[in-house]
Design a protein around this nucleic acid. Structure first.
Lengths: 234, 234
DNA sequence: CATAAATTATGTTCTTAAACATAAATTTCC
DNA sequence: GGAAATTTATGTTTAAGAACATAATTTATG
């Protein structure tokens, strides 16, 4: 973790924060811009940990982030994957409770941090900011409800298919048409609630069936509708 | 479903709505009280359905409510159980999307309904009301994150134990010390992500081990710490 | 009240996915 | 550069829980 010392507020930062900044009157806007920090995280570096007390709102500027929870016997469940532009880490603070999840950089990532006490402050002043968080939380809860049923009811194949479609949605494609994210089979397993072997096997099978293709740590989706069908069937 | 025609706003209604009403200036308070309706639902009667567009905020006045989602092949997953005083049905409206869940009365239930457009209106006027929903949503999302891992990682026994402890938390005890809720094994199964047979078998086992006892459709928890240990172990 | 439907109970079989094992290939890092 | 660790790959065994079957009991309903 390396905190950029100066010139934190580049145009990119302003752009990433714009969903919030655009809602603020000039004074608050300046305040928020001044206290925003940009931090570089290395691959697998934790951003915050389960049980800690939440002090920051985070925004992904570049790279990818996973939010996960340690379950039975330390088994990791990746709850969400976040790409550039995503806000995270604020829920626990808004609920006035410690983090129930941890967050880690997938690969090298650039993250913008804003102190939560400042967020609480501007929320109190600007109803539109509060509304922003109401909508974020309400949407996330809907996604969570759907995901709960997917993870508990779908079979391994269906869960992998759903994960792949979600990942493409979140991270988009690179220049060669692969999902723009490097992840290991283990991480795919942790996201899809299965063992690493099952993730490996299922990916291998889908490759040999020409439903997807793999190159290095990247995956390309070849048969969209088929994947969707696999995902829906369970 | 029977809408109480007059004298809707009894002291009980005011009390149930007080977490909201107490945040309002007199004018808005009167407005909300005037448009609140009290509805009686019969056992298993739907309150709202998956896919519908959300128009009301609901508050449980008396009885119990289940919020569920149809999954693969129509299999039902009960997402939440709600007792007296709980607010529900507002999330989808706040996210500007159709319901992803449905809600049904467990037994005969008295529910207070408030039009969501009115809620949006008072939210715009009273930041404290918005804050109320921010906190509700943020807490629910934390609960949801924890539950996700429980449902996916714990074994049948652990899931039943957790369900029982949660149900006691939510519904409390009747005069004889039983959890104050009548539910079928099927509903317990739908809540705990398992087949009905497995719920029946597990409950039978726990009864014969004197960890719980059963009378009619009610359950009493006899060995708290043991249940907690079973729940945590998975 | 009587019949139908739902619920509880329990036994048996079968399938999915976990657990375990081993090895090759790749990556990390001193 | 080379040892250690991680990741990918694949085969085998095992166990948890679903699926199926049957029946007794309770509850709902015309």
């Amino acid at each position: 973790m390396y905190i950029r010392q100066q010139n934190s507020i580049t145009p990119e930062v302003v752009h990433a924060l714009s969903p919030l900044l655009d809602l603020l009157p000039m004074e608050e806007r300046r305040m928020l811009e001044r206290s925003a920090e940009v931090v570089e995280y290395k691959r697998h570096e934790p951003i915050y940990n389960e049980g800690e007390s939440p002090n920051h709102l985070y925004v992904v500027l570049d790279g990818a982030v996973k939010v996960y929870r340690q379950g039975v016997c330390g088994r990791c469940q990746i709850m969400r994957m976040l790409g550039a532009g995503s806000f995270f880490g604020y829920r626990a603070s808004l609920a006035h409770e410690p983090y129930v999840t941890g967050a880690t950089a997938f690969g090298p990532a650039t993250i913008c941090c804003v102190p939560m006490n400042l967020i609480h402050q501007v929320m109190a002043k600007c109803p539109s900011v509060m509304k922003f968080f109401v909508e974020e939380l309400a949407k996330d809860l809907g996604v969570s409800d759907k995901r709960m049923v997917s993870l508990t009811q779908k079979h391994v194949r269906g869960r992998i298919a759903e994960s792949l479609l979600t990942m493409r949605e979140v991270f988009g494609l690179d220049t060669e048409g692969f999902i723009d994210l490097d992840l290991t089979r283990q991480e795919l397993a942790d996201y899809s609630n299965m063992t690493t072997s099952n993730a490996i096997r299922t990916i291998s099978a889908l490759v040999s069936e020409n439903v997807i293709s793999v190159k290095d740590k990247r995956i390309k989706l070849l048969e969209d509708e088929l994947l969707l069908r696999i995902s829906l069937m369970g």
